[in-house]
Nucleic acid binder design. Structure first.
Lengths: 244, 244
DNA sequence: CGGCAGCTTGACTACGGTCAATGACCGTGG
DNA sequence: CCACGGTCATTGACCGTAGTCAAGCTGCCG
């Protein structure tokens, strides 16, 4: 049980991926933040069908956002990384439409939902950022739809690996040419609409090709340019975004 | 060339699908609305890669939101109906990430982008609604991802038909048990990640089963309950949402 | 050391893609 | 008025990617 991180000392917000905060915004954040929550591996941050009294920003750790379908199948909607906002939908629309499950231990900043309105009335800049965050999320989902709709298995896997890689690099989580990769192949396949078996075959193929490799919960990309090419992604960097 | 609709007389905002506006909001909308734009069939409301100086709300007509991929394939991200907001992403993130193409003649309310900020500073309620709209959109895309990832061809087509049906019914556009259906089978297949050929086979099968039928640019659902069942959707109504 | 979760591989199957041809409908111009 | 060309829907034959089933493997934790 470590002490709660003061927003002033927050290591995340200074990463190049995020839009810098003004002094004023920072002051507001400090008041807005109600505390921290620690979730163990496998724990649920949000549960489909249940309301939540809070909004969260991931301070550290990773998670998976998924929906459970009637027939028991699972679709992973997105992977969740430090800096991501969780609970906007349930915050604005009532109950959560998906489940968010921690795949590592996760530490969350907690923002009370009943004060979101304050944010809109007294901090339009932050409100704007909130909308911006939602728009960024929407954009990613659009790309995901395009991937599931149009790309074949190899392209999909390459796409997912590149996306995860880029995000973690932008967060400065790369060491020795590898980034953490706490997801199971099952998570990947549920995200990409493939069977685990086939996903595995593709991963093995990419490894043999010398493109990328998943080893001991870490991901190494050996030929970034070629992998991007396979994925159908250009090599440009991710846009910056605000962080709450 | 008919006269511009005054927000006061706007037929859309009173539909049960939308959250009613307060007097105050209505007054603001009237000032915010810069005019109308009429787009012919096949015209582009927004073009991928280009910025746009405006936000739009669809007043009438339908469109298709799509991304063009490197290899020339097309993914339809969503279908666009009256009441939908267009251009939030390009408004907040710079350039449009997708193209919106009119499939009928479309009339748009135009909101100048440079006044969006006013909305955040002086009308927090509207700003909140804007975020809400973004969250709703995100939710739909999540469902789309789940559909493309987990459902087979028949379920996908059924899902799309039910979604379109529900939306148009909520907009009161049903007559004689049918709703307008201006989309080509190509649009459907591009939305569902199927080939036109296979999409057609499924549509024919659904028709033979007496579940649903597309005839002369109109969609008839003959067995709503069963179709929902095939689609893997429960029969509950859509949530209400704000309209800009 | 045993058990379980997750990764890997092989053999077979099937859903949906591709290619190709035909048909229905419509607007245009000779 | 009809011939022509275009777009979209429909159907058939064939094929290939990815799913399913099943078995073994590896590594970790109790």
């Amino acid at each position: 049980m470590t002490a709660v991180t003061d927003c002033l000392d927050c290591p995340l917000r200074r990463r190049p991926l995020f839009v810098p905060m003004t002094e004023d915004e920072l002051a507001f954040q400090r008041r807005f933040k109600a505390g921290e929550l620690q979730i163990p591996i496998g724990g649920e941050i949000l549960t489909q069908g249940q309301g939540s009294g809070s909004l969260f920003t991931v301070l550290s750790g990773m998670a998976v956002r998924s929906v459970l379908m009637e027939d028991g199948r699972r679709q992973v909607i997105s992977f969740v990384f430090p800096g991501d906002l969780i609970g906007l939908q349930s915050g604005l629309m009532g109950e959560a439409r998906h489940t968010v499950t921690a795949v590592t231990e996760v530490v969350l900043c907690v923002f009370p939902r009943n004060r979101v309105w304050d944010l809109f009335t007294s901090h339009p800049g932050r409100a704007y950022d909130l909308t911006w965050i939602a728009a960024v999320e929407e954009h990613f989902l659009g790309e995901t739809v395009a991937t599931l709709g149009q790309r074949d298995a190899t392209q999909r896997v390459a796409w997912a690996l590149v996306r995860i890689w880029r995000r973690l690099v932008a967060l400065r989580m790369e060491t020795d040419g590898t980034v953490p990769f706490p997801f199971r192949q099952q998570d990947l396949s549920d995200a990409l609409g493939l069977s685990v078996v086939h996903t595995n075959r593709v991963i093995v193929a990419l490894r043999r090709e010398g493109l990328a490799e998943i080893l001991g919960r870490r991901l190494a990309i050996h030929d970034y340019a070629r992998l991007c090419n396979v994925a159908g992604l250009d090599m440009e960097k991710d846009d910056v975004r605000p962080i709450l």
